[in-house]
Design a protein around this nucleic acid. Structure first.
Lengths: 231, 231
DNA sequence: ACGCGTTCGTGAACGCATTCACAAAGTCGA
DNA sequence: TCGACTTTGTGAATGCGTTCACGAACGCGT
């Protein structure tokens, strides 16, 4: 009874393990971070419950999420921390090193360039680029700022696939187009504006003002409606 | 036939207009920004289709979202830009000015303090706080950095309801607890760690490393599975 | 005044994500 | 070896968000 058919998907080459839902993908980095903490604290194994509380979610979600990677837990025991770190890193593609170009070296750009999270998680800053000629040549975080006209070259010679936009809103779409044209296929946008990208290019955004406004909504709700004081 | 019945919900006092779904709330700031652009470009009215393309979503979503605020569109015409800005601002609680305390004046903290998005959208930085004694007294963005021991006082005297955490990961939970204890009810966390807050406190996070890892996943998928690379 | 074209507002259908709940599979002590 | 206990992995149920599709309402030109 070798029931191959639809379950015999090779977990190795080609098709990982089905598709991992987007919502799960977004939580994997959180698990990874929680597991690092647990490993440092000396835990060899961890249960879904333990990982859940470290990651700030519930255990059912942890089990569902991890089940998308394969069956790496042991019933009655839990998950081996090191092994899980390896599998998650693998699923996220963190076993290989990705190169990043950072465009816009203003206040925020400086902070990002100096941010430790790049290097520690396998991301390499292949170049810093800015449109302001007075900034070109400046040394930031051990790198020399280059002109926007060199962006294409930086992307090609540095094997860059990820672009980070930290420019003012007005310049963001133009920079985005240049990045795409140069061959970048993933973009992280910090500029407070909506960007258009062609199919095949992944775009994520980080938006401070937006987050504050969402908090404002909830604050407003709290102060406006002092609980369920109807009746 | 004055069909009142269930449509005669007062949109003024008390119960706004039912509950606005979280997903809609998260898009309202985007609409607001798109509308600002449209207003500057001279548009007096805008259709759901027009707003949708400016905001990077589809028109059905726009109409559904806006319907939660009330019926402010005109069939056959669209929405009046100014009026819509007003209603969205109102729903988000942006007609009143919220005070913010920023904890952690490192690289990122500097960038945040200098970020224009605070002031331009009705948020006031009531104080900058840092635990490092060598930073206390320093002038940043026109404000004097104060010690962490003054946090509680800053919150109270400044009528602060929102706290922004831009400290290293190790200090974040402690700072978070202090903020909550001081009376802050909304927290925006930039530190790469999971925070625990009691019920009644809203928590949002902005996490660069997490975003990069999600992009990494998609890059990995793209390079691993050349997929439908037709013609 | 009236019909035509446009666009909103919304019930219904659909799909994705979360949660529930439990059988299966393992550990561990006696 | 065996039985009690723990914890995973996963179908099923539920809930939330998105999309569809269309009636209702409005402006405008004639």
């Amino acid at each position: 009874m070798s029931e191959q058919g639809e379950f015999a998907v090779s977990p190795s080459i080609g098709g990982r393990h089905r598709e991992i839902p987007e919502a799960s993908v977004a939580r994997l980095p959180v698990y990874l971070r929680a597991l690092s903490g647990l490993a440092e604290a000396g835990h060899v194994t961890v249960s879904s419950e333990g990982l859940a509380s470290a990651a700030g979610v519930n255990s059912a979600k942890v089990r569902k999420d991890l089940s998308h990677l394969g069956s790496y837990g042991t019933r009655g025991v839990g998950y081996e921390v090191d092994e899980l770190v390896h599998h998650i890193s693998n699923a996220l593609g963190l076993t290989q090193r990705w190169s990043v170009v950072l465009v816009g070296v203003g206040n925020l750009g400086h902070a990002l360039a100096g941010y430790g999270g790049f290097a520690t998680r396998g991301f390499r800053i292949a170049g810093l680029v800015d449109a302001d000629p007075s900034r070109v040549g400046e040394q930031v975080a051990g790198l020399t700022v280059r002109g926007i006209d060199e962006l294409s070259e930086v992307v090609r010679t540095g094997d860059v696939s990820i672009g980070v936009i930290a420019t003012p809103a007005g310049a963001a779409q133009e920079v985005c187009d240049l990045l795409v044209e140069a061959g970048v296929t993933s973009i992280l946008n910090f500029a407070p504006t909506v960007l258009q990208v062609p199919d095949g290019v992944d775009l994520r955004k980080v938006d401070l003002a937006l987050e504050l406004q969402i908090l404002s909504f909830h604050e407003n709700r709290k102060s406006g409606v002092p609980a369920a004081m109807s009746s």
